[in-house]
């Protein structure tokens, strides 16, 4: 499982500090697919970065009882000036994977073809996500962190994602930040809202989406 205990995180701004997370408590168990909902700037990405250990909290701690992917999203994790292949090779190396199998898998899964030999900075956000997702599948994490992503692509790619994630890896956990309610309904079996730097829990995904979609009245 993953346990976030009283996470606080603030950033320096022009005038003083802005506290984004004000005491987050969250537990994610094996097999849970948790959607994190929230307005822009509510702290979804910030929370995912703390869980992934990309940034460190001011206070509180994250207990990681299972292997967690790096936050998969539009940016981060790749070196823009290197090709898709070189990035894959680097990531395979640091996670202790054989490059040959990894290479075959990502060629197969991403369908990026010759684009894999181009620098990642020339990729569209969809292409980046495909590569990141393919690599993280090759590494076999217990929990996938997904930041602001709509599973983009054609029918075939969507089908593959569903197959790899839901059929072959139905026991894996996920933490997903997204604005796309369709994706969230499809992917997740639990949802929370981040508001005022705290987590609000709900019994069902639909309930969370309903509360989130209703604008708060003053």
């Amino acid at each position: 499982m993953i346990i976030c205990e009283n996470l606080h995180k603030s950033y320096r701004t022009g005038h003083g500090r802005h506290e984004v997370l004000k005491g987050i408590n969250l537990r994610v168990d094996r097999g849970e697919r948790v959607a994190v909902l929230g307005q822009n700037g509510a702290g979804k990405s910030t929370l995912i970065k703390q869980i992934g250990g990309v940034e460190l909290p001011d206070r509180g701690r994250v207990i990681r009882g299972m292997s967690i992917s790096w936050p998969l999203g539009f940016n981060g994790g790749f070196q823009g000036s290197l090709t898709g292949y070189d990035n894959a090779r680097f990531i395979a190396r640091i996670y202790g994977l054989g490059y040959k199998d990894t290479k075959t898998f990502i060629e197969d899964f991403t369908e990026l073809g010759s684009a894999l030999a181009n620098p990642v900075k020339t990729y569209s956000s969809g292409m980046r996500f495909r590569l990141a997702f393919a690599l993280s599948l090759a590494i076999e994490f217990d929990c996938y962190l997904i930041d602001e992503v709509i599973i983009v692509g054609d029918q075939n790619f969507q089908h593959k994602c569903v197959h790899e994630l839901f059929e072959k890896r139905s026991d894996r956990a996920m933490v997903v930040a997204s604005h796309d309610m369709t994706t969230i309904r499809e992917l997740c079996n639990r949802a929370v809202i981040i508001r005022d730097g705290k987590v609000i829990e709900f019994d069902t995904v639909d309930e969370a989406i309903e509360v989130y979609s209703t604008p708060p009245h003053e």
Binding site: V54, N75, G76, G77, F78, Q79, I91
Partner: peptide, 10 residues
Amino acid sequence: NGSLLYHRQV
């Protein structure tokens, strides 16, 4: 090198 720090073991 911020993007490298996405990988926890770095």
